[in-house]
């Protein structure tokens, strides 16, 4: 009997493949670029399809119409969503399943006061399209502001109501970390693919060691973060979740940066997808738990474990 076993079960593997195939078919590169061209408006039909596929109801018990799976399965699904750069308040709507009508089915779009910042932060993602804000009694009004990420529209609200989203914080942070891991792994693939194709000095640039080492470091970051996320999904321990978010944010942001570097001038274009990964990684790094908060939480945990 081997109990501490990190390998995915066959069911978990199938789930991951299933989600990957679904997203490849329904939200491939063309769809991604179409949503960029559409100015980031959310595709409500896709949202409903995600709902029908069980994306939001994944962890709702079966007797309440859900799929009845747990956090370990959810992080696999969110990793795939991160890989595909699927837009929208995925985490908030998933957390709202069962609490906000229509969230589980994908007929409602639910966002959250999940963006931190000095003084609690007044920016809210996807507010213009939201039917509800997680934990808030009513929809606040806000002014649209141009967003760094073309697929994450932002609104600035006048004042932030006392949010109840604290209760969702650990799960929100973990699922966001899973999205980051998906992005981090995807950017390694993009960099490696470009490194094999693009030739300079008569050979693929991926044969240059400077490029190789960037790619190798990208994989190291992504794999360490992925392990942290999977483990935190199993233990649901708040410190482990904070660590997973911290490492996943770092891996996603840093990998997107390195991916951009590997792409040279192409990486600086609107046309290449690299910037979309980087910008989304920046957004997610500000959501649910920032690096500073995670580090302080971990330090406190370290101190109490050591005393």
């Amino acid at each position: 009997m081997r109990a501490v076993d990190f390998r995915l079960t066959d069911d978990q593997r199938d789930l991951r493949t299933g989600v990957r195939d679904l997203l490849a078919g329904r939200y491939g590169r063309e769809a991604l670029r179409a949503s960029v061209d559409a100015g980031g408006t959310l595709d409500r039909r896709l949202w409903r399809e995600l709902g029908e596929a069980g994306f939001f109801a994944l962890r709702l018990p079966q007797e309440r119409g859900g799929v009845g799976l747990g956090l370990p399965e959810a992080v696999l699904v969110f990793e795939e969503a991160g890989r595909a750069l699927l837009p929208g308040p995925l985490v908030a709507t998933h957390l709202a399943a069962g609490a906000v009508p229509g969230a589980a089915e994908g007929t409602a779009v639910v966002t959250a006061f999940d963006l931190g910042g000095p003084g609690g932060g007044t920016l809210v993602a996807h507010l213009g399209e939201a039917d509800a804000v997680l934990g808030a009694p009513s929809l606040p009004t806000g002014e649209p502001v141009p967003s760094a990420d073309p697929l994450t529209p932002l609104h600035r609200v006048a004042s932030r109501p006392p949010a109840a989203s604290g209760a969702y914080r650990d799960e929100g942070a973990l699922l966001t970390a899973a999205l980051q891991v998906g992005g981090a792994l995807r950017t390694v693939e993009l960099a490696v693919r470009y490194g094999r194709e693009r030739e300079q000095f008569g050979q693929p640039i991926g044969a240059f060691q400077a490029v190789k080492h960037l790619c190798a470091q990208m994989l190291v970051r992504a794999e360490v973060a992925r392990t942290a996320v999977y483990a935190a999904a199993v233990t649901a321990d708040p410190a482990e979740v904070a660590g997973a978010k911290l490492l996943a944010d770092g891996a996603a942001v840093r990998n997107a940066r390195d991916c951009l570097q590997v792409h040279g001038g192409m990486g600086f274009t609107w046309e290449a997808d690299v910037h979309l990964h980087l910008k989304r990684a920046w957004v997610r790094a500000e959501q649910w738990r920032t690096a500073g908060e995670a580090e302080e939480l971990l330090a406190a945990e370290l101190a109490s474990a050591a005393m």
Binding site: R2, V4, D5, F6, R7, E223, V224, A225, T227, A228, Y230, A231, A239, E240, A242, G243, A244, L246, L247, G292, A294, E295, E296, L297, L298, A299, A300, E301, L302
Partner: peptide, 26 residues
């Protein structure tokens, strides 16, 4: 303090990666 907090996350993850590698090598 934050640097120590980050190290705590890194060594936690490395321990998990160890468990992962051990299951995989088995």
């Amino acid at each position: 303090r934050r640097r120590l907090g980050r190290l705590y996350a890194e060594f936690g993850a490395l321990w998990r990666l160890t468990q992962w590698n051990v299951s995989a090598s088995e």
